[in-house]
Nucleic acid binder design. Structure first.
Lengths: 343, 343
DNA sequence: CTGAAAGCGCTAACAG
DNA sequence: CTGTTAGCGCTTTCAG
């Protein structure tokens, strides 16, 4: 019942009647060891169920640990889940392990996570930066060789690599699609806070598409929400306007869920919709949901590849990689622009 | 450009002109320290940007590390993402950090992950066990006090806590719902491998519901798939049968996506559907998707609470907690059971 | 091919 | 209130 001490190198050495260093040699395929000793050591390791203490090893070796610190806003958001999986797939064969945490887009939680990760001497730090977070405290670490990569948004106060989607162009393309189908009153529902990089970029794309078509920007057509419920309310609010939109553009996947759910609930098939970021079942909706698809797998791969290159000594200038989005036309952007038929 | 050595306790001590232990005392609020020394130390810490090396600390203190090892099949699966988030939310205030990895349901990858986690002396191990994985190697660790909790499925070769959904009852309820609406030929599309615990349990619930209604079990109505595409193919296969099903039961969220997508593609509104596990946009489909909803948040909370209780010394017998599912009727289970109208 | 000693960064256990 | 010594589990360094 008292927690038994886990066996150590010394225990194994004692068992075989050899020195700790010899055991270490066998385990790390370091210096030369006679075949016989080797077998005995391996047998003892198996018998005692010995597992080397990685932390002790790391302490002594001194280098960074074989872990990667990854901070994302929400482990349950499918977009970030897909990015995380892609990162893991890319770093797996390097033997790196993921230390993960969700920040809930709160700078304090983000900081607390990155501090913990740094205290564990992660070999790489990957962060989806929260609005309001300052990253200048990472400067010395970057300078000391720690690869830091920002995901989905650029970070503040630190010049380092980042990987983002083509938010502005993608959004522009999506809104232009609506315009091409005759819509002139197009609502935008974005997430919060409004200072969020992706929100701002996507709104900029929305505005530039309107501008290209000489459609005046109408602030009253822009709404915001924190979550799906909020997006539903925002949808309902926009459609209740005196001069309501005939089309809606969703600023991200969660906003898309809210818009689609609310339109379904109120049986409004006459409202065109385009969403930024793909969602599952988009093709099964009626009409099927047209989206500006992001490429989370490619984002994850790029993040991981960039970080690994840095780890391998790449000292080139910090760069921002933009991963292209792709308009997937499925029908929902082509609803008649004839306005609401009936409430 | 040469990676500067990170400052250590000794560096801080030297800077202030005090001993290492004193610095340690300040940082850990250990013994008493004069206010003055305290300020000086804190200043030096800030100046040097010192961050204590958690691994070194842990080595010395000897106890388990403040990390939790979590193995799930796929970081990108929303169900497991939700479970992971809930776990994290529950353990956060205990200062525990998540070490995560996806096994892809491969026993070897699972083993490699758990071995890594053990080598890092995680304080808790949480695993969604893969089919074919044996966990007897964890026995000594469990015996030595390491809490091990299986998630979503029981593990093999180790008596320990597990948290699962009420698969059999939930599935029974979902199928009974279809039967109540007149369906007698009900297809089952489950995931692979067929030996998967959740698959078996849900199939058992399906069979028992059929049995209760004196509907004979027809093997040809049971299909399997690995992923959404496969589920689409399986759907199409079942509907192409000479005597096709009038209703389909999805064995999990991914199968549900495939079934719904295929029915939408082939414009088959006459097929009733009930899915095990909720999916986003379920209520926006036409008809809205009736599901047997799991409760990933509650699963995560229970997993975390169980593990923490063990960590706090709970030595009671290993238990299996079943988290109830809930039938959410939205309409898709009530399609007319009049058979296929037309191919 | 193998071992002894020293030390990674930190804290426990005693001193003072 | 503070410092010293020892040692966590491992590897480096240097001798055998």
């Amino acid at each position: 019942m008292a927690a038994k001490r886990r066996p150590t190198l010394a225990d194994v050495a004692r068992e075989v009647g050899v020195s700790a260093k010899t055991v270490s040699r066998v385990l790390n395929e370091d210096g030369p060891v006679s075949a016989e000793t080797r077998e005995q050591v391996l047998a003892a390791v198996a018998k005692l169920g010995f597992q080397p203490n990685l932390m002790a090893r790391n302490i002594r070796v001194g280098g960074p640990d074989t872990t990667i610190g990854l901070v994302i806003p929400d482990l349950a958001n499918p977009f970030f889940g897909a990015v995380a999986r892609s990162i893991e797939d890319t770093v797996r064969d390097r033997g790196l392990t993921l230390l993960m945490g969700s920040s809930a887009d709160d700078p304090d939680r983000e900081r607390s996570l990155t501090d913990k990760f740094l205290a564990r001497r992660v070999s790489i730090l990957m962060v989806v930066p929260s609005v309001g977070a300052d990253h200048s405290h990472l400067k010395p670490h970057r300078a000391a060789g720690l690869p830091v990569v920002f995901i989905d948004r650029p970070g503040a106060g630190l010049a380092t690599d980042s990987v983002v989607s083509s938010n502005r162009d993608g959004s522009h393309e999506g809104v232009a699609h609506l315009i091409a189908h005759g819509h002139r009153r197009i609502g935008f529902i974005g997430d919060l806070p409004t200072k969020l990089y992706t929100r701002r970029e996507r709104l900029a794309g929305y505005r530039s598409a309107l501008g290209d078509a000489d459609i005046p920007y109408d602030r009253s057509l822009v709404a915001s929400a924190h979550d799906q419920r909020g997006a539903e309310a925002a949808t309902s609010k926009l459609l209740g306007l005196a001069d309501p939109p005939t089309a809606l553009f969703a600023g991200n996947n969660i906003m898309a869920l809210g818009i689609v759910a609310e339109l379904a609930r109120s049986k409004r098939k006459d409202v065109a919709v385009v969403a930024f970021d793909d969602v599952s079942l988009a093709e099964a909706l009626e009409p099927a949901l047209t989206v500006v698809a992001q490429d989370p797998e490619e984002i994850g791969r790029t993040v991981a590849a960039t970080a690994l290159a840095r780890l391998d000594g790449d000292r080139s200038r910090a760069r921002t990689v933009t991963v292209p989005t792709r308009l997937i036309v499925r029908g929902s952007g082509e609803q008649p622009a004839s306005g609401a038929r009936e409430a």
